[in-house]
Amino acid sequence: MVEGAKMSESKDVILGRIRGALKKEVSDKADDLLALPDILRSYEQQSSHSDEEKLHLFAERVSEYRAVTEIIAEEDTGERIRTICSESGVKSLVVPGGIDEKWVSTLDDGVRLLRDEPEPLTKEELNNSDAVLTGAFLGVAQTGTIILNAGTGQGRRVLTLLPDFHICVIRQEQIVGIIPQAIKKLDSTVIETGRPVTMISGPSATSDIELNRVEGVHGPRRLHVLVIKQKS
């Protein structure tokens, strides 16, 4: 009770200080904010890139963060994932619920699939796994960014965090040109579902030591992005 009283007291103190600072009467907030005119937004909100340009720009910019990027045909996806796992010695692969089964149907016998659904995997299981395979919600060409929104085929945030190697599959149709377009497409995720959003640009990195960029501190040290080319 004391805690609660102190809290609302602090709230009143702060609001009072703000109103004093702004020389403003107590007012009804909803009307106040709704009455404000729109902010002038003269910056670019649409990109001028063609689909083909966006695809190549995305691949190039993701690679510049020292991630591996490949543009592939839909029918080759399973085979590419099989090869990547076998070349990197992946023995256990984490997959979220709703993953496209064709992507994991041709894995070598030695690779154990760790499914996060129906029973969620533990932190320890995730930490001891070799890699994680997910889809994505969006890609941003201009910045080489992958955006996850915890939707189908992407799973909980921790899935793409603890394994040391993230294999991410994204479709060409999911790539937008610039950041404002991505923010718009995230509207419903954030405003309606309230699900978390993670933006990933390359593997984890630090420049804390003499500003030398080092890939891989706490997040996955390797990121491999497969872009499925749109059928024309």
Partner: peptide, 10 residues
């Protein structure tokens, strides 16, 4: 162009 991670939660 973009830092490696942005974490948004609601």
């Amino acid at each position: 162009r973009m830092n490696p991670y942005n974490n948004f939660w609601t």
